[in-house]
């Protein structure tokens, strides 16, 4: 029962207002993609014990998608940020590193 602050409307949203959308920053693979790249796009997902980047939608609120960086182990939320981003912004990465000095960075 997480609480995530929706960066689009500012509400501290209870998990019952949210819909989860799995891993963030997946790059769409179109008709020209190789079999391997397309398979990875459709099916390969990270499942880290620790820092993770996820997509969420404020489904019962403003309806907007956003991204959240959080720790799957301790449930600590490092921050939420716009879904219109191809990779985590620097301020999020800085905040994660401050809290997790040993973190190796986003999984490849």
């Amino acid at each position: 029962m997480l609480i995530l602050t929706c960066p689009c409307c500012g509400a501290e949203a209870d998990e019952t207002e949210l819909a989860s959308g799995g891993e963030a920053h997946i790059q769409r693979q179109g008709p020209e993609s190789t079999d391997a790249a397309f398979e990875a796009y459709l099916f390969q997902r990270k499942n880290p014990s620790g820092v993770h980047f996820e997509r969420w939608r404020h489904a019962f609120g403003c309806g907007k998608w956003f991204h959240a960086a959080r720790c799957t182990r301790t449930l600590e939320v490092f921050g939420t940020y716009t879904a219109q981003s191809l990779k985590p912004p620097k301020w999020i990465l800085d905040r994660i590193r401050k809290r997790r000095p040993d973190w190796a960075g986003p999984l490849p």
């Binding site: 689009c8 409307c9 500012g10 509400a11 403003c62 309806g63 907007k64």
Partner: peptide
């Protein structure tokens, strides 16, 4: 402002989302 409603003379504007 976000998550606010403003009313004047029988009409109101309610903030639904950043683009609604």
């Amino acid at each position: 402002e976000p998550r606010r409603i403003l009313s004047v003379d029988g009409r109101s504007l309610a903030w639904m989302s950043p683009d609604e």
